[in-house]
Design a protein around this nucleic acid. Structure first.
Lengths: 344, 344
DNA sequence: ACGAGCAATGTTAACGTTCACACATAGGCG
DNA sequence: CGCCTATGTGTGAACGTTAACATTGCTCGT
């Protein structure tokens, strides 16, 4: 009981438009795809017919004929985190309006999960994939992945076998560390993010290198899991150490937890301890005290990744390695000179 | 220069699989779609051929033949906010694995923008649309929208002309207000979210009704914009009013800003002023002081919306209006009895 | 033992586009 | 003046799958 072509029910077809406009279906197709060699008069008539009928081309048929799907896939970690969600925002914003952006979330970045997600997207025939892959394991998983669709990674480290865009975490951490050193602190402690994340590693490197370059002692590195909870827990350990006068945190949430722990142990900020965060989430300006932090432009990162992907899809293999985005230091009240300078 | 069917280059086709397995392409199709009437032996052979060839069915062709696209659209506001991003998480989680979830972000919820977004999804032939539409204007825009695909809305208020799932904001606000009243506060002030959001209205209603029921005075309502910044700004006004001893905030971010403002003006929490938030974001436990707040299960909300949509897509019009999700009051340190009871 | 009925498979025709041509008609140039 | 090119349009054949129907060979009840 299929509907006869051109009959009343169902959506209008291209032939219906053609009939109404008094042309062939091919001419309608030409108008739709902005092909040359269509007279202005004909084009106008076709357009009118399209409007009158409320015609909308069938995406599947077009895809079948052209081989292009106008769909992109974004694979991401927990989009509840500030970074990833901001990136997603940028990605969606920069996507061409006629493209569909599909999302898939990954719990773990092992080869298996990643492969499943990619396979799923390939099944939907996306034209390209963007991977928000900040974890070390993701890089390894990527290597073992053979894909025929363009893939770009966000902040995947420089060693990644795929094109990627990054933020200069190293420079950001260095700048923050330098700042506290310049304030007069003998050294700076670091409450890092999970070591499985590349961002954590890079930020830790920037911190370490800066200390070494300044001839400062490099304290043991402690790892949190990005959450305020972990910052709080570790913060209690840090707060108990009198030699701790300055702490660089891997992100602002952990900084919040740390601030809380310091407050609970009666150590004032920035009086006794200076704290600097990372990310500049919108709430950072209202922490107790307002947090000095390293601002990252995640939105821009997303936008760049999308542009890079579209370039690759369109075959524009311009070999611009895309300079890493430079973060800014936002100075607020949480860092200050130590109470006493020059004490050994 | 098209490739001949079955020749070396390009992806393998169904006929290639059929040839290798020694059956017809239709039998391959049957295996792929779990149709009955395929012998175990044949099925195994086909499966083996599929594996050997690395065959993957062409989604567009399947869509063209079946009319089903296995794609869903999610229209949402700023996914940087905690609520929306958590919901997106739940949505993605509950989506059938063979479905593609596409996203579109809206800056404003006027008829125009909404129509554009929906139109775009319709162009991609999604099978259903989920709208995270917490704003009043969205409801109006929805009414003027004629869609032939199933649409469900999240927290769209009860007056919405489409099926929707909601959180019981009213009960949550009532519970929080009641809690502070029971603590001994004469009345409770409310720092609400933007009045254009339904959540704001409902929470304000819950607050107002509870005060009225208790015979307490209903103070003027003040509106923020969900941001800590707005909470801070308005907080300064509130902090200057000595009669303010208890404040219910529309969300946790504004509560943070308020806490900051109170601290800046030397009013202690909960000593001088009690504060209760809304949402229970992960950071709330580490605010100064830890925030008593109304926890909302946004993830569950997303999951329910997805289930509801899938039911409608599959034609299961079970008329379950889906009880609103009941929020919990999480008691922490930011609310306490007032210093002096009974003072007028 | 013989047709009914069902399991297992094959054959052909959609699905709604775009692509590769073929075909007119008109203008420019030797 | 006729040929060659460019413009405008139509015709038929893909694109790769699933749906509908046809066909074969069984088993089963009587």
């Amino acid at each position: 009981m299929k509907q006869a072509a051109g009959s009343q029910p169902g959506r209008p077809l291209m032939v219906d438009v053609a009939r109404l406009a008094g042309v062939s279906h091919q001419t309608v197709s030409r108008v739709l795809n902005d092909h040359p060699h269509v007279s202005a008069k004909t084009r106008a008539e076709v357009l009118a017919a399209i409007r009158d009928l409320g015609y909308r081309p069938n995406a599947a048929a077009r895809t079948l004929a052209t081989g292009r799907t106008n769909a992109l896939g974004v694979i991401s970690v927990d989009n509840t985190l500030y970074g990833p969600s901001s990136m997603l925002y940028g990605l969606e914003q920069a996507a061409p309006p006629n493209y569909m952006v599909a999302i898939a979330r990954l719990d773990a970045f092992d080869r298996q999960s990643l492969s499943v997600a990619v396979e799923r997207f390939l099944g939907q025939a996306v034209e390209g994939i963007i991977m928000v892959a900040p974890q070390v394991a993701a890089v390894e998983a990527l290597i073992s992945l053979t894909t025929d669709v363009p893939l770009v990674a966000i902040k995947c480290g420089t060693g990644a076998p795929v094109p990627s865009v990054t933020i200069d975490n190293l420079a950001g951490a260095a700048r923050a560390t330098r700042y506290m050193l310049d304030l007069g602190h003998e050294t700076v402690h670091h409450l890092g993010g999970p070591p499985s994340w590349l961002d954590s590693q890079e930020r830790a490197d920037g911190w370490r290198q800066t200390l070494l370059a300044a001839g400062a002692e490099v304290p043991d590195l402690v790892y949190g899991d990005w959450s305020a909870r972990s910052g709080h827990e570790i913060g209690h350990r840090l707060a108990a150490m009198p030699e701790v006068t300055a702490v660089l945190c891997g992100n602002d949430q952990m900084a919040l937890g740390l601030l809380r722990a310091l407050a609970e142990q009666g150590r004032s900020v920035p009086g006794d301890v200076s704290v600097v965060g990372f990310d500049d989430i919108p709430e950072a300006a209202f922490f107790p005290p307002p947090l000095t932090t390293v601002r990252q432009d995640f939105g821009e990162l997303g936008r760049r990744a999308m542009h890079l992907l579209m370039d690759r899809i369109r075959g524009v293999d311009r070999f611009v390695p895309s300079m890493p985005i430079m973060p800014d230091l936002v100075v607020r009240a949480s860092a200050a000179p130590p109470k006493r300078r020059g004490s050994a």
